[in-house]
Design a binder for these strands. Structure first.
Lengths: 133, 133
DNA sequence: AAGAAAATGAGAATAATTCCTATTGACAAA
DNA sequence: TTTGTCAATAGGAATTATTCTCATTTTCTT
């Protein structure tokens, strides 16, 4: 069933915006992308739907970079590199998240381990090249 | 040289507060701890000194949990478990951060890799036991 | 003791996120 | 097509962690 209502199209635009980029965007970035096509969309709707998608497991959150939450359309476990200079987030697709670690962690905590976050911070390629600080 | 000025003692209280706890506190928590002993301390000073210590490498930041930044007096690389139910952060001391990963990451990014963050999120032991949701 | 420089306290300012509510959109029944 | 009901949204106000400002205090140097 092809949903084509106004609300559904907005919601879909938010989701596919996230899924079609690799910048690991913030809510504000998604808002800026969707706004031209849906000029009457509100930032609150973007926040609301991102929270909804996250809860439904359709998207993931990286946590916050420099105080703002960043999202990821790719929910498969993978590794991130975060540049502390330009706040860019990139995937390190060739590095695997050792799944064995999760069970190790569960054993140690005695609780329920849901997600493993593996990330590196540093200065990205581009910022290293154009260093003028 | 034994520094015993008023400002130094405040600053020291902030640092040793962080170093003598394992709760991975927020700025506000540190403020609440130090306040009884130094009633005229201000929250701004806590923030200022935490930023200073972090920049000097005396403490580390875990990033934010539920919107608030959390600090760690232990700057050795180690693994964290974050409960998404009660926002507690605990160490998983028996798990090592695979240092080999850092050089792998550096090779892939072509940039400068500084820190490796490995954390698990889930529901902690205590929250699992007293589940009433 | 005096002056310069650094740090602080108190509160205002900022900014990301959430909340509120009147309105609009979707959908089923008549 | 209209009506009723309920969910979702727009727009903006409210919230809250953090940063900033600046007058004052503290520290250091001479």
């Amino acid at each position: 069933m092809e949903q084509t209502t106004k609300q559904f199209r907005k919601r879909n635009a938010i989701l596919s915006c996230l899924r079609s980029t690799d910048v690991h965007p913030s809510a504000d970035w998604v808002y800026a992308q969707v706004k031209p096509e849906y000029p009457d969309i509100s930032l609150g709707t973007v926040y609301r739907n991102l929270a909804l998608f996250k809860q439904q497991g359709l998207i993931a959150s990286l946590g916050t970079v420099n105080g703002v939450e960043r999202f990821d359309g790719n929910t498969d476990p993978h590794v991130h590199f975060i540049c502390t200079h330009c706040d860019s987030v990139t995937d390190l697709p060739q590095m695997a998240v050792p799944q064995s670690l999760c069970s190790q962690a569960a054993a140690q905590t005695g609780g329920l381990v849901e997600v493993c976050h593996l990330a590196f911070t540093g200065v990205c390629n581009r910022c290293c090249s154009s260093r003028n600080s």
